[in-house]
Amino acid sequence: MKNKLAIGLAAIGVAAVMQGTALAEALKVAVVLPGVVTDKSFNENVYQGLTRARDELGVEIAYTEKVPQPSQVEVMSDYARRGYDVVVGAGAEYTDAAKRVARQFPDIDVIVLNGAPTDGVATINYDNQQFGYVLGLAAGHGSETGKIAALSAQQVPAFEQVVEGYRAGFNAVRPDGEVLVAYTNDWADIAKAKEASLNVISQGADVLLPYLDAGFLGVVQAAEERDVHVVGVVRDLSGEYPEVNLLSTVLDFGGALYQAVELAQNEAIEPRDYRFGIGTDAGYLGGFNAEASQEMRDAVAAAVEKMQAGELDPSAE
């Protein structure tokens, strides 16, 4: 904690010095977030990308936490009025607000992370199928029962894309394998996520993919108790949960934001959809389970290579 504080203070000091000297014309970037920057998940990840942009690119930053739906437009256009050059909505739920702000302030760059392609807005997305595919591939080699599962709170497009790839990857190894999908209706309800997980495990699933906020903890716990595996899609679970993690991929939204800011600084960002595949700076493989077979590691590595080369497109299957 103290360390973090010290680093934070040092960073503020550096920023202050930099502002005081040469960077009167520094790019001003504002991020509007749905949650708090200490959530150990999406928001914190985005915040880290933002502070990295400040430290390494020398841009001036600002952010607002926990902005609810009704205030999105107000908060974002307030930043635009105050002279921020780049206004970022962190999450698909900002898409509509971003569209209105972009229309109202055509001179600034409006960016939405994970949002659907929208007129006038730069959206940053992942080829979710690719990430699902490698996890499904790993599950195909790791599963003993031939049944795996994916859990989310809501039927959102990004999750459906992950599942599409997950199923394709799994069936590539096990053509008759079955993928169970369950929804808990609550991103943060850990108890519900745990019950839903126990439920799919009792139906024979032995690899689970959580696509949840805090709820993923319930999935991990259920897996620990019943001695099955989890594959992580958003963050790397191999460090904290090495026993249950089979393989993780990382969707580094902070890294994606950093790249977008870099583009904006060079005045090269356009209002279009930017898409990151697997094996880029912003989306990559996390850790394998220590006992993962060489066969699994090879298969995953080969698939990543093929997808990077454009020879394999799981979304087309």
Binding site: D186, A188, D189, I190, A191, K192, A214, L217, G218, Q221
Partner: peptide, 17 residues
Amino acid sequence: YIVLSQVFLFSDNMSAG
């Protein structure tokens, strides 16, 4: 019960309605 019998940790707003 949620903390001591079900999930063994605390998370923000875990009563979830």
